[in-house]
Amino acid sequence: MRKITMRTALMEALNEEMERDETTVLFGEDVGKFGGINAVTKGLYEKFGGTRVFDTPIAEPTIVAAAVGMAITGNARPIPELQFGDFVGIAFDEVFNKMGKWRFMHGGQMEMPVTLRLPIGIAGGAGPEHSQSPQALFMHGPGLQIVIPSTPYDAKGLLKTAIRDNNAVLFFEHKVLYDMKGEVPEDEYLIPFGKADIKKEGDDVTIIATALQVHTALDAAEELSAKGVEVEVIDPRTLAPLDMETILQSVKKTGRVLIVHEEPKTGGSGAEIAAQIQEQALFDLSAPIKRLGSPDVPIAQSIYLEPFYTPSKEQIVQAVDELMEY
């Protein structure tokens, strides 16, 4: 099968969905002629014109509010982008209270077909406000679906589903993954929300990881396999809805759980997953649930300090070794 980068996979999804549905409209800072600072929207302006693909002022609250306004008319399917996922803080009310709750608080009379794209993650000295992974904040916000792909295949299939969905989607893209290549079929496919993917099967320890950490976990899995420990790596792919069924099935089999993400450990998505595992499968566990996340301090600008924020292969191997002692 052909191999393409996640950037190309996302670009293909946008192209195909904008061709398919002429009510789609894409906008954000520098996404038009320039093609986006991550070059994901390159060529769309030329292809679909300046009304359907447009550059906006640097105004995140207005970008998201406008998307909400477009969506509730029932006549448009907006695909806005915030240049950095961190900037979601600037538009927090629009995302948390308007995108997430407008439909419900008006009695379910309107739909919210918005796909908000948010590039996230530590990616080379961008500092405390251009490197974060804020997705867990929105697990607390009803009405928001949270998508976080780890491969080009997943990114394409999930983005296509997101755009066609009539509900709000926050689509988090880890910046380091843009250049990562993976197999993507030429033929069209969609990936449903709420369906985790088992990236590697194993009987000894369940590792639940998202985004870039899926790859770190797979690297660790290889090293562990050489030592005779077979881990199962599960990528939830969407944090809301969350596929607990797949996770619990794995926990039943392994009895040992490690959750790894780049989000800060405290209140990260792993906290919710761990809580649900102990609520529903405490007696399947033979060891305490372990979590690896970034330290609970702001991300330092220094390129020297930055790697200490990202869970490493060594940390994962060590955590699994500790779990195997039980």
Binding site: V25, M70, H106
Partner: peptide, 24 residues
């Protein structure tokens, strides 16, 4: 099309509905 509990938020949403008229 409703109204926000946080006053003034409708100002942003209204450019979205208005843009849709242009789009369609």
């Amino acid at each position: 099309l409703g109204q926000a509990g946080t006053i003034g938020s409708q100002l942003g949403i209204s450019v979205g509905t208005a843009y849709t008229s242009k789009l369609t």
